[in-house]
Simulated assay, not measured.
Amino acid sequence: MTASLEPARRRPGSDNAGAVSVSVRVWDLPTRLFHWALTLTVACLLATGFGGVMEWHFRFGYASLSLLLFRVVWGLIGGRWSRFSAFIYAPRALVAYLRGQAHPDHLVGHTPLGALSVYALLVLLIAQASTGLVADDEISASGPLTRFVPGAVVSLASGWHVGFGKWIVIALVSVHILAVLFYVRVKHQQLVRPMLGGDKRIAAGAAASSRDDAASRTLALVVIVICSGFAAWIASLRL
């Protein structure tokens, strides 16, 4: 995906008035679809979990497992700004960002704080999906892998899945949403629009675009099919 060289209009009074900006593909289509699909899936998981609709809770759980596995793989082979290597920051980078000394790359993909939020959410959601596979409420719902692990593990996984894990995920999701609103309303940084259309206007020459062509999208399709197949196989082990 090549960047447009059309100059962007600057707001009057901007510190960078007169500077040239270009449209850069930051989020490739697979990353955008993953983001919104996971958002919907997590919402459905919470609704079915609190509502006690366990059959659908399991189905959305398998869907989330497929998406999370895809994101792990795509974090290694995806577009430039979707790769984990693009938002692994040293502690000094985080400190500098908090002091207002942001590197130009921080304004393109994930900021150091945003990166921490992404990693925390991915780790906790993977933990929730994993513990759900071996959880058992001893009434009507048990994960497909419960019979393969010791009872002590099932007990610990069940306690985490329906207790601390669930509430920590809710807290992190809430913080994530509030942070996005803060950046949009207070700092006037567009975060939602690039995740919808994929492109972001940045200073000319500041960063390269993410690859987002037919070949990369086909590769993403192959990856999600494989991940979905693995999740379906896991689901088939449920008694």
Results as ranks from 00 to 15, higher is better:
Ser158Pro: 06
Val225Ala: 14
Ser130Arg: 05
Ala37Trp: 05
Gly229Lys: 04
Val72Gly: 03
Leu68Arg: 09
Gly165Glu: 00
Ala235Thr: 01
Trp81Phe: 11
Arg99Met: 07
Arg10Trp: 08
Phe148Lys: 01
Ala235His: 07
Arg71Ala: 07
Thr146Pro: 02
Leu221Ile: 13
Val223Asp: 04
Leu76Thr: 06
Val225Thr: 11
Ala17Arg: 13
Gly151Thr: 03
Phe84Gly: 00
Thr39His: 09
Ser66Leu: 05
Ser216Trp: 08
Pro112Asp: 00
Gly198Ser: 03
Val22Phe: 00
Ala86Pro: 06
Thr41Val: 10
Thr218Cys: 13
Val180Ala: 11
Ile177Ala: 14
Arg201Leu: 12
Tyr89Met: 05
Ser174Gln: 04
Val162Pro: 07
His57Gly: 06
Ala19Pro: 09
Arg238Thr: 02
Ser23Leu: 13
Ile88Arg: 14
Gly114Cys: 05
Gln190Tyr: 12
Leu113Tyr: 04
Ala17Pro: 10
Val184Gly: 07
His110Ile: 01
Phe148Glu: 02
Arg211Met: 09
Ala19Ser: 14
Asp105Gly: 14
Ala19Leu: 13
Ala120Lys: 06
Pro91Asn: 08
Val24Asn: 02
His103Thr: 13
Trp81Pro: 10
His188Thr: 12
Arg201Val: 13
Ile168Tyr: 12
Val184Ala: 13
Phe84Pro: 03
Arg201Asp: 15
Arg99Glu: 01
Val186Thr: 09
Phe148Ser: 08
